[in-house]
């Protein structure tokens, strides 16, 4: 679905060449996968995201979307139609004064007949659970609602894949939960390929696969469970692990044999209770 081969990129601010942002990066994302991308600020994750719909073009190597090279100018619009993007700040992505007009913006620009647009807009708003707000003014919605409208705008293009660059960074816990629920639904019901860039480890823990970037490279690429068990590595990269993982790990390091392969509260509680039982039976 999305493929980066030996991808190389650096920004040039016109005065001096800055450091290489993406350095010979290889990544292959399959149809229907939910991939979380982690990394501290400046590690190149947003730069990578912008390559997936041709907003940026590789300086070296290639990026393919459904087998189409993003360097193929004639296919650029086909690529953009297949990869929807959602960014951090919902206020910067909303263009219309009415929710449903905003969602209709992209399909209108694709020149789709109006009956079809109507259907797509309604479907998209229902998918993100914002249908009853279709006549509302976007600026009066909460952050989580605005971000769901932005997602509806992306999926109204009927893309194969949706790339989200920190869509929850500006939201409160409730708004974050709404957006995450929407992402999981898109994956389950529409088999949408989702690339989620995030700083929140609990969100990454919900993905099928976690890619950790540092300094333009991919450092780890594995299931959330295998990634988060590498507590020391993640910390050294300026990243967190879920608190329960960190707790179980630190207990382990102090010589208490608690299983630290845990991602959720329940798993951690189970591990601690198991350990307590093992002590008691040893007594």
């Amino acid at each position: 679905m999305l493929k980066a081969e030996n991808l190389l990129y650096s920004y040039d601010n016109g005065v001096k060449k800055v450091d290489t942002v993406l350095d010979n990066l290889n990544l292959n994302i399959k149809k229907g996968e939910f991939v979380a991308v982690l990394g501290h600020n400046g590690c190149g994750k947003s730069t990578l995201a912008k390559h997936f719909n041709g907003l940026l073009l590789p300086l070296g190597g290639d990026v393919y979307v459904q087998g189409i090279n993003t360097k193929d100018e004639e296919m650029l619009w086909t690529i953009r139609r297949q990869v929807g993007m959602v960014f951090q700040n919902p206020d910067n992505q909303i263009v219309a004064n009415v929710v449903e007009e905003d969602v209709a913006f992209a399909p209108e620009n694709l020149g789709i007949p109006s009956a079809e647009i109507r259907k797509r807009v309604d479907d998209a708003l229902k998918t993100v659970d914002m249908y009853r707000y279709r006549k509302h003014a976007p600026h009066l919605l909460s952050g989580g609602q605005k971000q769901r409208v932005a997602i509806a705008g992306a999926i109204a293009m009927r893309p194969e894949c949706i790339v989200m660059d920190e869509p929850t960074a500006m939201l409160d816990p409730m708004g974050r939960a709404e957006v995450m629920e929407t992402i999981l639904k898109l994956k389950a019901q529409e088999n949408m390929t989702v690339v989620l860039i995030t700083h929140y480890m609990d969100e990454a823990a919900m993905a099928d696969r976690v890619v950790v970037m540092d300094d333009g490279h991919i450092v780890v690429d594995d299931t959330p469970r295998n990634v988060f068990s590498q507590v020391e590595l993640l910390k050294s990269l300026g990243l967190d692990v879920p608190q329960v993982t960190e707790l179980a790990y630190s207990l382990n390091k102090e010589g208490f044999d608690v299983n630290y392969d845990v991602l959720t509260v329940t798993e951690c509680a189970d591990a601690i209770m198991d350990y307590v039982r093992s002590i008691k039976s040893g007594n």
């Binding site: 409160d172 609990d202 608190q243």
Partner: peptide, 19 residues
């Protein structure tokens, strides 16, 4: 709608389980 630290939720759970 506030997120209490995850570790606080865990401790709650452990107390509920009898620790």
């Amino acid at each position: 709608g506030l997120n209490v630290p995850q570790v606080n939720v865990l401790i709650d759970e452990l107390v509920a389980r009898g620790l």
